[in-house]
């Protein structure tokens, strides 16, 4: 095992799971996408989810965030059984999701985007925007979490991809009080921009504000970002390791050998 693997970013990543899935199954027609997912997310932890396309990662996240509901199995939030019928229901339980670069409104400014859906208003039912207050809070909040933009009055359109993603993550974090789901937050992003998001997510996890699940294809990113990595294959979680007990090489080897086994099973079954 290599020695340059970073230690877990967060020492509080232990204790009772904040989110637990037991035997989740999901089929679309004849296609069984999830075949019994067992997963647990501990408070303040960053959990990475890897796997090939079609392994079921996105489906799993869509169940966790309430977009789909599971066919079988159960979900526990802080020990209590929950079942979400909508994204709003999951959101009401403090679970927020950031989708790939879709979240911002290009024509709105940074602060308007940050407060979208949670605008501060005044004059009662007239719902006049309290722009001054929103600008001020946006500036303070972005400073606090180390996100740097030219100005909170800049239109999102004029930001770089990394800045946009950072704002999207920042908004989700403001709204999430328990769990943040990040679906490929580093997709299509340059090295410097990836760094921005990685640091942001690490800081957030360290603050203990939220627990985070990240989907990504890039092992190097995940090893830097996460406390623990789960590998999904064929609708199941096949490997569950803390990052400091494994390495990129080991995970790759485990995945390959697991595929080999599956392949052999298929051959034997066919023979």
């Amino acid at each position: 095992m290599s020695t340059d693997v970073p230690q877990p970013t967060n020492p509080v990543a232990n204790g009772k799971p904040v989110l637990e899935a037991r035997g989740l199954t999901k089929s679309f027609g004849a296609l069984q996408v999830l075949r019994g997912i067992d997963l647990s997310l501990r408070p303040g932890e960053v959990l990475g989810l890897v796997g090939d396309n079609g392994a079921g990662k996105s489906t799993l996240v869509k169940i966790l965030c309430g977009f789909h509901s599971q066919d079988g199995g159960e979900m526990l939030l802080e020990g209590k059984q929950v079942r979400f019928n909508s994204v709003e229901a999951a959101r009401a339980h403090g679970i927020e999701t950031v989708y790939q670069d879709l979240a911002l409104i290009p024509q709105l400014t940074v602060y308007q985007n940050l407060f979208l859906g949670h605008e501060l208003t005044m004059l009662g039912p007239l719902r006049f925007l309290n722009n001054r207050q929103m600008r001020k809070l946006a500036r303070e909040y972005l400073d606090e979490i180390n996100v740097h933009v030219p100005s909170v009055d800049a239109e999102a359109e004029r930001l770089s991809g990394g800045q946009r993603q950072a704002i999207a993550v920042a908004r989700a974090v403001r709204a999430a009080n328990k769990i943040l789901l990040l679906d490929e937050p580093l997709a299509a992003m340059g090295a410097r921009e990836s760094r921005l998001i990685i640091n942001l997510v690490k800081d957030l996890a360290a603050s203990g504000r939220v627990s985070i699940i990240v989907i990504d294809h890039n092992y190097a990113h995940l090893f830097e970002l996460c406390d623990r990595v789960n590998v999904m294959q064929g609708g199941k979680i096949t490997i569950d390791r803390p990052v400091h007990e494994t390495s990129i090489e080991e995970l790759t080897e485990l995945m390959v050998s697991s595929y080999r086994r599956q392949l052999e099973q298929v051959r034997e079954g066919g023979a």
Partner: peptide
Amino acid sequence: RTRFGVRIIATGGNLVGAAEAGV
């Protein structure tokens, strides 16, 4: 100046994004 105005721009600018943000 009102929330309704911002929501119009948000909905027209990015329908899916606006819905996800709770508009």
